[in-house]
Design a protein around this nucleic acid. Sequence first.
DNA 1: AAACCAAACGCAACAATGTTGCGTTTATGT
DNA 2: ACATAAACGCAACATTGTTGCGTTTGGTTT
Lengths: 141, 141
Amino acid sequence: MDNESKIRDLLSVHGLRKTPIRKEMLDVFMNHDFALSASDLVHKMTVGNDRVTVYRALVSFEEHGILHKASEDKNGVKYALSDHNNPHEHHSDQHIHFICDGCHQTYCIEGVVEHQVKVSSDFQVDRVNFTLHGLCKQCLP
Amino acid sequence: MDNESKIRDLLSVHGLRKTPIRKEMLDVFMNHDFALSASDLVHKMTVGNDRVTVYRALVSFEEHGILHKASEDKNGVKYALSDHNNPHEHHSDQHIHFICDGCHQTYCIEGVVEHQVKVSSDFQVDRVNFTLHGLCKQCLP
DNA sequence: AAACCAAACGCAACAATGTTGCGTTTATGT
DNA sequence: ACATAAACGCAACATTGTTGCGTTTGGTTT
Ligand SMILES: [Mn+2]
Ligand SMILES: [Mn+2]
Ligand SMILES: [Zn+2]
Ligand SMILES: [Zn+2]
């Protein structure tokens, strides 16, 4: 199934309208294997001309589980397609986020990070967030 | 040794001037056991009235290793005193950052997170960033 | 095909964080 | 006391993100 059909299906399944902007947003996501920010999208898109529309679509896509936040720092949030919608298949149910020190892209990658936490009982640890850092294939020497 | 003396020493050691603003900034940090943002500081301080001065002092303190970034998200960066300067002694050489889901404060805590990373060889992992999430002592039921 | 309507869009305005330039003040060594 | 670089204060700006509101439009109903 080609991307256009996938996109139409995806929007249909979630009861979202197939507008030019939202279709192109998903198309951009499907044509990149790393996470994108709102401004990344705005710059890559040909239709639409309003940041606000993109922000609101991102929120909607995240609420519907189409996208997820892949990384977040003071420079903003980057989103990526959620597991089942990602043609790159770099996803598994528990997937990992890798931020390249070279190209500064955020990748959703397969793999596992086993960890054992030992901290003071003054803190009840409910979950552990981690991000891997290093160099991606393109940036390796 | 009281905080005032510590602060004077700290600034002296790093060749920084003992100005009212910078002394009060360090005083505020020493009187809190969680990380603070630039705007946290501005609101807690009695001297000085310019965000820019605080931002520049934070950068300077970080460059000199007096402070370190304890957490960072889309709402901004929070700083904490670095290991040897922290009167709360929650620090060890490898310390951990805990973000409370209740009070949303970031704590530098002692402890370790042992981990084994297994990912595709397309990515060279140089370091793993961890953040623990849960409830702090004050927020526990 | 026309009508309907909520979803989506576009625009203006705003808030928060952070940065830069530049002139002024002040802490500190001489 | 003087000199000077560090630090400060102010204005201006950039970026990310949000809210309100009127308009357009995709999808449905008639
Ligand atoms: Mn991901
Ligand atoms: Mn810390
Ligand atoms: Zn890279
Ligand atoms: Zn708490």
